[in-house]
Nucleic acid binder design. Structure first.
Lengths: 355, 355
DNA sequence: ATGAAAGCGCTAACAC
DNA sequence: GTGTTAGCGCTTTCAT
């Protein structure tokens, strides 16, 4: 019955000192302080029901022994839990790691926001094709809510999680028929602003680099199309270069475009790293950026400001993102209905688009 | 006595459906399956002590209801725990967030390594002046081990944690009298290689940009000094520009160096972002990189390859780092004595040092 | 093959 | 003000 009989047995002489010391618990403190566990519990929780002197004595003792209440036991008893799961999907096919600077920046921002509010953050990866497995930590009572970085292609699974009442916030784009809560940048606006900026600079044959299967990218693509339409330009379907968020693939696709004789004078890329691949591909043909081809990025990662050339890019408010995501999740935990938010984005103009 | 009396009371008619549904537990599955909780427990753990048919029935039922064993309760009962704390210190003074790309990259790498081995990762921030508070999660039984990203200036506190038997691995440099386990790059080698490379390129007045209070930086500085000495150059004490890992401060310090009339033809910086600040400061005086001043970075973050100019930098093996750190921690959990590791680093030569 | 019951470390209602 | 005791959701010994 005892899961670890040896632990509660009378300590074997030698074992006590070097073998893994039994973890201190409340009963030990109680014994050493000469009071009952209830008193210790009360003292440590600062209850006024305990004699002030006893209280300080117990608290001092605990501190001196580095004793801290076992949080697992406390949580079980109190039915409380202040842990949030943060899930970064990964592409199982390419076995791509969590490495996109933007995603990592969001993770950092979430860590800050959660810590500030006294929540703990359980960080995990999940196969992007099985986003619903992100609910496991919730089902197991491990966490009280889930944050997923990116929608990927499984809107349906996310809806499924929400339908199951899993408190959930997704960094991504708002979709029709969406049951879950999203927080994200204004993707349509971002795509539109970047494209319009290129059009204002006189560009007419503008490629779009990204995979519109992803809702966020789809909105950016629509913004791009709207800007073209507004300028009276009919989009050539070959202008859509449908690549994942993976650098090598993007480079190959661009090289291929050149080989096929596709002619263009600008590229709207869906991340800064993708934009830099475009720059490299353009230069590999002897053309110049921005003189011959203008390029815009997306995210405004730190590298965008320092790259060669510095990238004109759509700035996403990472720090604010963390705060808003956490806010949206906590609101749900308080019983409020999920309310999605779209944050304004801002085009930052640098050398990759202006001579 | 019941911490949440309402929960166990007979469900109020309406409450059942829309008010936050009570979380499913084993007793519910047992009732629905018409067996006892013991049987459910056995079935879900795949025990052969339970009738094969009953087992599948129970398992199916649980799956269909998205029931998962409450991990907190299970952990408490089994005295097990597969969670590791990953702690990213922050500078309380500057209230600097977790944002250094290198630290975030390590976090990503750790997430991968831990997930692969079936461990969960609790990510948190801690004031760099109170590194020992990183032990709290361990004291509370929340995690079985702690990983701290960076040594900062509190070697003593880390030793304290180790003395308290907290299973611990620190990303950083090996120090004399060190009780805890470190995994890190070869900092002396990195500083030496970078400096030697500059010397081979004919540079003679080489600044060092970084704060040698930090053990990692101290080793890099020693490598730098050794390279100078080997070349028969006496280091000018003014060549040490003692700045934290903070971009604005680095820029100010460099501008100041120029104002003071300090003359130099190369800079060894302790991060890629610091190196880019050096480039900016040099260019602001009308000088060119690398023609007038060569600059080396450290870490080889993604941005180093794409920056203007691309940075010669010391590559740190981030992916391998995650694996090794986790490995070192797990070895300790198995009772092996802490064994520190130093990983080779490699100078990557790019345009910032060669015309 | 199954169930009853004890107990993991803690809190709080209840008794004194 | 303090101690006794039941029970949070689970696993496992023991009995059947």
């Amino acid at each position: 019955m005892k899961p670890a009989a040896a632990r509660t047995a009378e300590p074997v002489a030698a074992a006590a000192q070097d073998r893994e010391r039994r973890r201190l618990q409340m009963a030990d403190i109680a014994r050493l302080a000469g009071v009952s566990v209830s008193t210790v519990s009360r003292a440590l929780s600062g209850s006024t029901l305990v004699n002030a002197e006893t209280r300080t004595r117990v608290v001092e003792l605990a501190k001196s022994l580095n004793y801290t209440i076992n949080q697992g036991a406390q949580n079980l008893r109190l039915q409380k839990n202040r842990t949030i799961a943060v899930v970064v999907p990964y592409d199982a096919a390419s076995r791509q790691h969590i490495s996109d600077p933007f995603f990592l920046a969001i993770v950092g921002s979430l860590a800050d926001a959660l810590t500030d509010l006294g929540y703990e953050m359980l960080l995990s990866r999940v196969d992007a094709e099985k986003l619903d497995s992100a609910g496991a930590a919730y089902d197991a009572g491990r966490v009280v809510g889930v944050i997923i970085i990116g929608q990927w292609r499984h809107h349906d699974q996310l809806n499924g999680l929400a339908a199951r009442q899993v408190p959930l916030v997704v960094w991504g784009a708002e979709m029709p028929q969406q049951l879950y809560c999203t927080v994200g940048g204004d993707n349509h606006g971002g795509g539109y602003q970047a494209t319009r900026h290129l059009l204002m600079g006189g560009r007419r044959r503008i490629l779009f680099l990204g995979n519109p299967d992803l809702p966020e990218v789809r909105w950016r693509y629509r913004g791009y199309l709207d800007a073209l339409k507004e300028a009276g330009i009919e989009a050539d379907p070959r202008w859509l270069l449908d690549v994942p968020f993976e650098e090598a693939a993007a480079r190959r696709r661009l090289d291929q475009a050149y080989q096929e004789g596709l002619s263009f004078d600008a590229v709207v890329a869906c991340s800064d790293l993708l934009a830099l691949q475009a720059v490299a591909a353009v230069r590999a043909t002897g053309r110049r950026v921005p003189a011959d081809v203008s390029v815009t990025g997306y995210d405004d990662a730190p590298l965008a400001a320092w790259s060669d050339p510095p990238l004109t890019t759509v700035h996403q408010p990472v720090d604010e993102a963390g705060r808003l995501i956490v806010e949206a999740l906590l609101a749900q935990l308080e019983g409020q209905p999920p309310r999605s938010r779209t944050m304004p984005v801002q085009l930052v103009v640098r050398k990759s688009t202006v001579g």
